[in-house]
Design a protein around this nucleic acid. Structure first.
Lengths: 386, 386
DNA sequence: TTGAAAGCGCTAACAG
DNA sequence: CTGTTAGCGCTTTCAA
């Protein structure tokens, strides 16, 4: 019969049910030293019983382990061991957004999966550093017991990132910031990726395009990004994608100054949706909406659906990233190897010994032509009307 | 102009570009003691400069911090501090699957998001423990410098879990295992949830149902689960869901022994797809496929689509969990508050001081009737034919 | 094989 | 406001 109650081995019960925060931690029932004293052997011997089984006789080792069980000694304290050995056995991960965001954004999720894979393989833990976007409180970075950091796509002047740099441990950056000396980096050529996408769009005849982009700099800004804001952007990835777009448009004679760029602070489908509304509200003549991320593009798609605009017949919409959702939706986008980025970031940090490995890894992107881009009928009308 | 190269403040450069694993860590350039010596003050004073700014004069503190910058002292070593204060400032998370799985399974992702939220709010890090499903290597659990553990849905006899119980820190379990004394738990009433779903299905007239379920016990098993295996199941969640189903079927006189249960080791859409194939291949007369997870149900749905079976007209398919994908697909399922479970797990562990809070939290579930369940035409045919 | 000695780097009484 | 004293629990030469 199926039943849900379980009899659990009594000797394995955790007797430490108290809450952990605020209060000092439960005192360890026994230490390596007390065990050694009890047994009348040296601390070295007990330590060896755990860390170097070959350094003592099997019977003695058994005696030690038996006494440990009897006295409730849980094995060497990991923190004390870390202090002594100077390794924590974990990699710290710094994200620009609130921690929980990492599990909502599919691009971040892909990256994390790859990073977790690399950590797993190296037997390293992955410590997610809690950053409070509200308070610029950097203590979490100082507090992290890790052997190195992976920094995922943060602003150049992010205070947490600066705090990471002060820690005497190796650091690997994914995507941004760029050009930090002594710090390895993995990313893609965002500019080239966007350039090829732009050529695809202009090749379909589009000339009146509008842009939806992610956060460009510090502070909560939503709406039209003027030239000033574009130039001062502190997110290199957005900067590069926009630069690729600008170059691609320049090739067909479209003046960048005439291209409306709508910025969104939040990165969500809703933001894309209302961003598209703002964009097309201000410039109804636009025939193509270029988004600097798939999530925003998915939102634009939703907006189009709500307004009864046919995609791509009435409106071309493109994204960037190549997340699974976008692929399912048939979005025209630039795919980047998200999982691979995470894995490479981990390997860059964890790779043993090899001093000659590359310090900058540039992964390839791929233009994915879906069903959301097509020749603009409006454009044709425009020409024929002339 | 947009550009991607960045000039980075020279004094912030990380000079520790070496790989971290295998090699001993880079030696800290300075310590609290050396700083104190250099300044001619006591170590306490330096410590206070960082941890208790109100315990020393502002000018002296400034002098200390200035000297720290000059000597490249990165601030108190987090590991040494942890050893001294007996708190690591992090929560360990143990998952039954490979770490990277957590980022692929939407149910796990929802849970993680909630847990991350709670950690973030408490300023605690979240350490993902790397478990090698291959080797039963428990060292990662021993090595984790954490103040407590959250265990997410593991088998009752999982060796990693047993190792967690040996650690002298508080532990909270989500979902399973059940009934571990001294360990708090958060979960839902899986049995009741499945019972109400079953009543919905039988209410639609279905009598010949088949089941697709997740891993039931140790070892890689794929295929029909016999009574023996069902009874020995070491995953209480699966056990409970099946028990609810059995009870619901019993209410309308369906004998549980006649109900085929197909088990899948992997939890993926593909597994659901080929599981459904196996189920219907063996029992083509089935009118409803009950899955114990949405992911499996999504796979069954795909199978039905491939085979040209109309859902729900030819086949009723149901899930369990209420993940976003399932909701989008209109799946009939039981929704459980995934994010909330994560948050409660975190709060159970981190809640300060309150010794009277509940130790077992049971969250509500909700039957979600979608478009994948309906009256069985086959069943009607069956009756009319008699 | 085993043990003695020497810290890893820091914080927390407590006394001045 | 500052310093002295005492470890936190462990690993690791080195010598016996």
């Amino acid at each position: 019969m199926l039943h849900s109650a379980t009899d659990f081995p009594a000797e394995l019960l955790n007797r430490y049910g108290s809450t952990m925060s605020g209060l000092p931690n439960v005192r360890r029932p026994a230490t390596l030293a007390s065990l050694a004293a009890e047994l009348g052997v040296s601390r070295t011997t007990v330590s060896n019983a755990y860390n170097r089984p070959d350094q003592l006789s099997a019977p003695l080792r058994a005696r030690v382990l038996e006494a440990a069980r009897r006295l409730g000694y849980p094995g060497p304290d990991p923190v004390a061991r870390s202090l002594r050995t100077r390794k924590a056995g974990a990699v710290g991960l710094l994200l620009t957004e609130a921690l929980s965001y990492a599990f909502r954004d599919p691009a971040a999720t892909g990256f994390l999966e790859g990073l977790a894979l690399a950590c797993e393989q190296a037997g390293q833990g992955l410590l997610l550093i809690p950053v409070s976007p509200e308070h610029a409180d950097v203590t979490a970075v100082h507090q992290a017991g890790v052997d190195g950091f992976v920094v995922y796509s943060v602003r150049e002047d992010d205070p947490h990132f600066l705090a990471v740099l002060e820690r005497p441990v190796p650091t690997v950056v994914c995507d941004q910031p760029h050009g930090v000396e002594g710090v390895d980096r993995v990313g893609v050529d965002d500019r080239a990726g966007m350039l090829s996408l732009t050529r695809h769009v202009t090749g379909l005849g589009h000339r009146r395009v509008g842009v939806l982009c992610m956060r460009l700099g510090e502070g909560r800004h939503d709406g039209l990004a003027d030239q000033q804001r574009l130039q001062n952007a502190t997110y290199p990835v957005q900067r590069d994608r926009l630069a690729g777009l600008r170059d691609g448009l320049a090739e067909v004679g479209v003046d960048w100054a005439d291209v409306p760029v709508i910025e969104r602070f939040e990165h969500s489908v809703e933001a894309g949706q209302n961003g598209a509304a703002e964009l097309l509200g201000a410039r109804p003549d636009i025939t193509a909406v270029i988004c600097t991320s798939d999530i925003l593009a998915l939102g634009a798609l939703r907006y189009a659906g709500d307004r009864g605009l046919a995609v791509p017949d009435d409106l071309t919409i493109t994204g960037f990233d190549g997340v699974p959702e976008a692929e399912r939706a048939g979005l025209t986008t630039v795919r980047q190897p998200l999982l691979e980025k995470g894995r490479v970031a981990g390997e860059l940090l964890l790779e043993r010994g090899d001093r000659n490995r590359p310090r900058r890894v540039m992964l390839p992107t791929e233009l994915l032509v879906g069903t959301t881009s097509g020749e603009s009928r409006t454009e044709q009308r425009f020409f024929s009307g002339w």
